[in-house]
Amino acid sequence: MSVEQMYQEIILDHYKAKHGSGLRDPYEAEVTHVNPSCGDEILLRVHLEGDTVADVSYDSVGCSISQASTSVMHDLVVGRPIEEGMATAAAFTEMMHSRGDFEPDEDVLEDGIAFLGVAQFPARVKCALLGWSAWKDAVAHALAHKEENHD
């Protein structure tokens, strides 16, 4: 696959549109994740309502792959049950570690399937996972926070 093909239209559109970008209230957890080798950074907030991801808001800088994948993630998790988001995150992560040898389920990953080509460029896999790992971390924090408040 050529690099030009790796940069699917879907990726470039998300890169420029950055769905859900910006920091919003309310939120239960806020995390910062960085990719120290390239300096990509994301500050991400999660707002949960019961078992649902009510909002994910973020402020991030980085390459097209990290920005687009965060935008796609936003679309895939917001308004849906936490559990479903976690399953999607697992499917996305598995695809990214497949080196491109993977049959993605479009019903699960939706626009995320555009990243299958990125999985063939090992140096960019970390970029694609930055937002997702921040989201998983933030949810874990928010849930832990909720438990504390119940105690």
Binding site: C38, G62, C127
Partner: peptide, 24 residues
């Protein structure tokens, strides 16, 4: 008017055999 991130620059250049560095 869009800033092209250095990693994206590097990736496209690499596909044409041009090796530069992108990052901080």
């Amino acid at each position: 008017g869009f800033d092209i991130h250095p990693h994206d620059v590097m990736q496209l250049l690499d596909s044409r055999g041009v090796a530069i560095r992108g990052g901080h």
